[in-house]
Simulated scan of single mutants.
Amino acid sequence: MIKHTICACGIAAALAACGSKTETAPPPAPQSISSESIGHYCTMNLAEHIGPKAQIFLNGKPDKPVWFSTIKQMFGYTKLPEEPKGIAVIYVTDMGQVGDWNKPNADGAWIDAKKAYYVIESGFIGGMGAEDALPFADKAKAEQFAQEKGGRVVGFDDMPEAYIFQ
């Protein structure tokens, strides 16, 4: 009887240990813009647009990002109640690493959107012919751009809804 109790306790402990290991897979890596990269809202190829872009990976869909022609569109997607909320990761163009602002993603300069600093209200006209936010990985580069060209710097969580939906 004692042998069975010890065995049962051992099995229970082993099962509990298995259940406590919650390994999460790393987020998908950003993808390069190709002829298959079609904007979620505009349904146009992203390569045809200037300015920074964004890509969102939804949980369970690591091979197929949702593409955005502008940064404002990406923010709108995260705020609109009718859009999916199971977001694994968001990537935006790091404009501080871009050599040619007319083809910003030729350099593959993708960064985690939640860690980026955004210059807003600078008057920069983005991919859809309207003012857009400019993401930077380096806060000093964002502040320098805002000082030289105008605008102000905000973080991901501080992006004003009034700016997104204007």
Score class of each variant (00 low, 15 high):
Gly86Met: 00
Met44Leu: 08
Cys42Pro: 03
Gly108Lys: 05
Gly39Thr: 01
Tyr77His: 06
Ala146Leu: 02
Met1Gly: 12
Asp100Cys: 05
Thr93Gln: 13
Lys3Ala: 06
Lys149Gly: 04
Lys3Cys: 01
Pro104Cys: 11
Phe156Glu: 09
Ala142Glu: 07
Gly99His: 15
Met159Gly: 04
Ser122Gly: 02
Val92Asn: 09
Glu82Met: 14
Ile56Met: 13
Glu82Ser: 13
Asn45Asp: 01
Glu48Cys: 09
Gln73Ile: 10
Ala116Asp: 00
Phe145Ser: 11
Thr5Pro: 00
Phe124Gly: 00
Ile11Arg: 05
Pro27Tyr: 03
Lys115Pro: 06
Ile164Ser: 03
Ser69Arg: 13
Val154Thr: 05
Gly129Glu: 09
Gly76His: 15
Ala116Phe: 11
Ile50Arg: 13
Met1Ala: 11
Ala88Lys: 03
Phe75Pro: 13
Lys53His: 11
Thr24Leu: 11
Asp138His: 10
Tyr118Ala: 06
Phe75Ile: 11
Phe68Lys: 02
Phe145Ile: 08
Phe68Ser: 00
Ala12Met: 09
Ile111Pro: 07
Ala146Thr: 07
Asn45Gly: 00
Thr43Gln: 15
Met95Gly: 10
Leu80Pro: 00
Trp67Ser: 07
Glu83Phe: 03
Gln73Tyr: 14
Ala142His: 08
Leu46Tyr: 07
Asp157Thr: 14
Ser35Ile: 03
Gly39Ala: 06
Val154Trp: 14
Ile90Ser: 05
Phe57Trp: 10
Ala13Gln: 02
Glu143Phe: 01
Ser37Asn: 00
Gly155Asn: 13
Glu82Leu: 12
Glu48Gln: 14
Gln147Met: 14
Met44Val: 07
Ala137His: 14
Ala12Leu: 10
Phe57Gln: 01
Val89Ala: 01
Lys149Cys: 08
Ile164Thr: 03
Val66Ile: 15
Gly76Thr: 12
Asp112Ser: 06
Gly19Tyr: 00
Ile33Asp: 05
Ile38Thr: 04
Ser20Gln: 02
Gln97Val: 12
Ala88Pro: 03
Gly108Asp: 06
Val119Asn: 03
Asp132Met: 07
Pro27Glu: 04
Ser32Tyr: 04
Met44Ile: 03
Ala25Thr: 13
Asp63Met: 09
Ala12Glu: 02
Ile87Met: 09
Cys42Ser: 12
Ala8Lys: 02
Ile33Ser: 08
Thr70Ile: 10
Phe68Leu: 00
Ala137Tyr: 15
Ile50Pro: 02
Lys149Tyr: 14
Ile71Pro: 07
Asp100Ile: 11
Lys139Gln: 12
Val154Arg: 12
Glu131His: 07
